[in-house]
Amino acid sequence: MTAATAGPGRLAVARLQYEGGGDWYANPSSLPNLIRAIAERTSLPIERAEAKVTLTDSALFDFPFLHATGHGEMKFSEVEARRLREYLTRGGFLHVDDNYGLDESFRREIVKVFPDRPLVEVPTSHPIYHLVYEFPNGLPKVHEHDGKPAKGYGIFIGNRLALYYTYSADLGNGWEDVGTYPDPPAIHEQALRLGVNLFTYAATSRVQP
């Protein structure tokens, strides 16, 4: 489905299509694999099809979980920044995965959305690291491009984590089909487990407008 809504009583994952020239469509097998894991490992009523939405789509607020990735430029218009702020403030959840190249533009653009809320490191005690699977050390490292440690940053609205940014981890690559990258299956499993935690948190912490 594209900007379609989820079925009655069901939850869905949507890939965010953004402007700027970045490959928002990267890691094509990642979300289908994540959705399958959520469906098989939790009791959440999840749609089996990945959706694709822009920030101006009328169906944006129907999705509890948005995922954005890519290697290049991300750019939000003033209208898009306002819509994303409204989406997150009203209970939505955005996961942004830096696919080694998105960091500079994402950090610039998110200031348009929340000039008053800086990105902060999410503590390892947060529920995203414990809801379904335990991650006592926080975000797992999937790729070793530059030797930097994997970092999970977030923006909080009240006590709720509304945006989670995975940096120097390549979590989405870990969701892709085993064999797509030379990472061992154990890393693929760790990535999927954290993805299950993220979606579970997004679905169960959502504040209804």
Score class of each variant (00 low, 15 high):
R90H: 09
R90I: 15
R90W: 13
G91I: 15
G92D: 15
F93I: 09
L94K: 01
H95W: 12
V96L: 04
V96C: 01
D97K: 05
D98T: 13
D98K: 05
D98P: 00
Y100Q: 06
Y100G: 05
L102R: 03
L102N: 00
L102H: 02
L102P: 00
E104F: 15
E104I: 15
E104K: 15
S105T: 09
F106N: 06
R108C: 05
E109S: 06
V111Q: 09
V111S: 01
K112G: 00
K112I: 03
K112M: 04
V113L: 13
F114T: 15
P115Y: 06
D116Q: 14
D116R: 10
D116P: 10
R117K: 10
P118C: 15
L119K: 11
L119Y: 03
V120K: 06
V120F: 00
P123S: 15
P123I: 13
T124K: 04
T124E: 09
S125H: 01
P127L: 07
P127T: 14
P127Q: 13
P127I: 08
I128A: 07
I128E: 12
Y129I: 02
L131I: 03
L131V: 07
V132F: 01
E134N: 13
E134V: 01
E134K: 09
F135Q: 10
N137H: 06
G138V: 00
L139I: 00
L139H: 02
L139C: 02
L139R: 10
P140G: 06
K141Q: 10
K141L: 07
V142F: 06
H143A: 14
H143I: 13
H143L: 13
E144W: 09
E144Y: 07
E144V: 05
H145A: 14
H145D: 11
H145W: 10
D146V: 12
G147C: 02
G147A: 03
G147V: 01
K148F: 12
K148P: 00
K148D: 06
P149C: 06
A150C: 04
G152A: 12
Y153K: 13
G154R: 11
I155P: 01
F156W: 02
F156G: 14
I157Y: 02
R160I: 12
L161P: 13
A162P: 03
A162D: 02
L163M: 08
Y164M: 08
Y164E: 12
T166W: 11
T166I: 07
A169F: 06
D170I: 08
L171R: 08
L171P: 00
G172Q: 09
N173R: 08
N173I: 02
G174P: 01
G174Y: 02
E176D: 04
E176R: 07
D177G: 05
G179M: 10
